[in-house]
Write a protein that binds this DNA or RNA. Structure first.
Ligand SMILES: [Mn+2]
Ligand SMILES: [Mn+2]
Length: 439
DNA sequence: GTAGCCC
DNA sequence: GGGCTACAACGCATG
DNA sequence: CATGCG
């Protein structure tokens, strides 16, 4: 039984960008659907002269879109024109603490733009970085970052009070969401069996996440989208564990090697993870380059990025022909082979204390539902570093703090996305298996 | 950053 | 209305 | 099996 309309009353608008009001208004939870007749869509995407016709309890509220139906699609581009970001930057270019941003047809209410997210540090000669700076960065970097976020279930790392405030993971968004936010429903076997994940598939979503204090964007290594390279074309992610396991979300589109230095600076608190230090990162760099060489011998081309914290991410883009289990086995094999060649430098130990003094290769990231900070995502640590894709030659001299939300745009305008090919040329694993069995 | 709960 | 709290959570490795 | 790990 549906709740009665009176029970659904609420004081505040459920819309993320409340429409202009001309008379006193009673808001309702968006839980029931009504049919109305109306004169036309206004240019703002509102109803002109709507009149109630009937309740439509046969329609699922979540399936209802706000605004006129999309125009018969222009071919979808996978990157945005730079001008779209320009319009955002222009609106942000003032000192208002709050403002209603217009993004295409959507409106996003931005608040606390002056709040310091990354505090100043005089010793490191760092100026404060505000929430406005974050949203500016997201708007500018979107055309490079969105392709790497597309269709991947997102975990938000939120710090609404900045990096010195409370921080929390958030996988699901229970509150009302703007219409432009796409989601995917995934079986969970927890809390009522299924849960919605956000897909950061468009610019307004990225900016809205910034408004919500998302400083880090962590994504799955598989995509909720079918394609000719995928061994599964199933998109039922939610009806059962079996459905999810046989769906395309169970087929990663890259192998992941998470490279974490466990070389301590000596300044860490008891039991804390190692801080960024030159020796540790130099070790990570060396291991990544060895790994690249080994993979090359297997006819696999790897790409590298800084994680933004202390280590590196090495990915091998692949056709989606093996499940996460298969991918993990391959990475374990490759990792152990490399460890045998460099036992002094590399560890794959599971007990943290046994990793000390070495570089940890984590192959266990190749699991459905595991996430890593996506390319170009900032990190909630001092200096506002970002996860930076690099050419292998650039890695030789790179340091994690070389790439921050204050300087990567200038670099990107010159170099473009170093990981552009990750999204295109996927490798067939058949050749790799061949080269292993040949010895 | 925001919603819900409890006083 | 103000203060407090929640906002992940699972499968794999290992002993 | 319980627990630690990311
Ligand atoms: Mn790690
Ligand atoms: Mn890492």
């Amino acid at each position: 039984m549906r709740p009665s309309l009176a029970k659904l009353a609420r004081k505040t608008s459920p819309f993320s960008a409340p429409p202009p009001l001309h008379r006193p208004t009673t808001w309702l939870e968006p839980e029931r659907v009504v049919e109305v007749s109306f004169a036309e869509w206004t240019p703002e995407g509102l109803l002109r002269a709507p009149v109630f016709i009937r309740l439509r309890d046969d329609i699922e509220p979540r399936s209802v879109r706000n605004g006129p139906p999309a125009k018969p699609a222009k071919a979808r581009r996978d990157s945005l024109p730079a001008s779209e970001a320009g319009a955002i930057l222009q609106q942000l270019d003032n000192d208002a603490n709050r403002l209603d941003l217009t993004v295409g047809g959507a409106r996003i209410r931005l608040t606390n733009l002056e709040r310091v997210y990354w505090p100043a540090d005089r010793r490191a000669r760092r100026a404060p970085i505000t929430k406005r700076d974050l949203i500016r960065y997201l708007a500018a970097v979107a055309r490079f970052m969105l392709p790497h976020l597309k269709d991947r279930p997102l975990t938000m790392i939120r710090m609404p009070e900045g990096i010195d405030g409370e921080r929390f993971f958030q996988k699901h968004w229970e509150q009302s969401m703007p219409d432009f936010v796409e989601t995917v429903t995934v079986f969970s076997g927890h809390k009522g069996e299924k849960q919605d994940y956000i897909l950061a598939n468009n610019l307004p979503t990225l900016l809205w996440l910034g408004q919500n204090g998302t400083l880090e964007f962590h994504v799955w290594h598989s995509r909720a989208a079918v394609g000719p390279d995928a061994a599964s074309n199933r998109t039922d992610y939610s009806s059962s564990l079996e459905a999810l396991e046989s769906s395309v979300l169970n087929y990663p589109d890259y192998l992941v090697f998470d490279i974490d230095p466990y070389i301590y600076s000596g300044k860490e608190a008891q039991g804390a993870e190692p801080e960024l230090n030159e020796k540790g990162f130099a070790g990570a760099r060396k291991v990544a380059l060895w790994l690249r060489t080994l993979l090359k011998q297997m006819a696999l081309e790897a790409v590298v990025k800084t994680s933004g914290k202390t280590g590196l991410h090495v990915f091998v883009p692949i056709e989606r022909t093996v499940t996460f289990d298969g991918a993990r086995q391959i990475c374990e094999m490759v990792g152990r082979h490399l460890m045998k060649e460099h036992p002094k430098e590399i560890t794959m130990e599971w007990a943290v204390e046994k990793r000390s003094g070495k570089i940890f290769i984590d192959y266990n990231m190749n699991v459905r539902g595991k996430t890593l900070n996506v390319a170009y995502s900032p990190r909630g640590v001092p200096g506002a570093p970002v996860s930076m894709p690099l050419a292998w030659e650039e890695l030789e001299t790179a340091e994690p703090l070389d790439f921050t939300i204050g300087n990567v745009m200038a670099r990107l305008e010159k170099t473009g996305d170093r990981w552009h090919d990750v999204l295109l040329g996927k490798h067939s694993l058949a050749q790799a298996f061949g080269s292993i069995s040949r010895g």
